[in-house]
Write a protein that binds this DNA or RNA. Sequence first.
DNA 1: GTCCAGGGCCGTT
DNA 2: AACGGCCATGGA
Length: 231
Amino acid sequence: MKLKPSTLYKTLLNKFGPQKWWPVDEVYHKKNNSDPRFEIIIGAVLTQNTAWSNVEKAVNNLKKRDMINIDRISNQKLDNIKELIKPSGFFNQKAVRLQTLSIFLRDRYKGDLDVFFSRETDVIRKELLSLKGIGPETADSILLYAGGKPVFVVDAYTRRICQRIPFETDISYEGIQRFFQNELSESFSKRDLNKVYNELHALIVVLGKNHCKKKPVCSGCPIEEFCEKLV
DNA sequence: GTCCAGGGCCGTT
DNA sequence: AACGGCCATGGA
């Protein structure tokens, strides 16, 4: 039996339960002029190849200074941003990335995320990818978790799992993304897609952390029966 | 001490 | 196009 993405979703959800990553409506309290979507955007950049626990420290430092704010990140001296986000690692590049992105949003969209996200997904995606420091995964995380767009996020775990199962797809970013989106958009109703993409990506991360590590821990893995244990 | 995280850029083949 | 080195902190 071949494993389908929709089956993977149901299996993982059943095994691990909802992960509740960035549930936009839950966090949706406007405080000190800070848009929760911008906090998600910042998190998406800071979490690049970094443990989430470290990102939380950095985000909390920014919050204390009311820096979850497009204008304030845009205007702040780079050294100050570096200091605040230090716990998230790679702080020299990430400070630049945050500021570049903020200045882009400020100058192009007057810092209005409603306007920014109101457009065609592909258009937004290309804009994000044109910024230094925003690659496919960060762009798609921003689109999905901050923008509420139905976009499936592919990460290192997803790639690894796709190799080991293996799914019938090339393991390029776009290849995996198309493969998942094609099958999932047929198996679920349109209004559930966002939730499915949101939850599935988070569930895959849990599977990766618990079982599908570099050195696989197959005992207790919910999809072991489908796995050819390659790579 | 070693390994590795919710990647992406840049230089070299 | 594909690959390797690099970036950095903190928890296991």
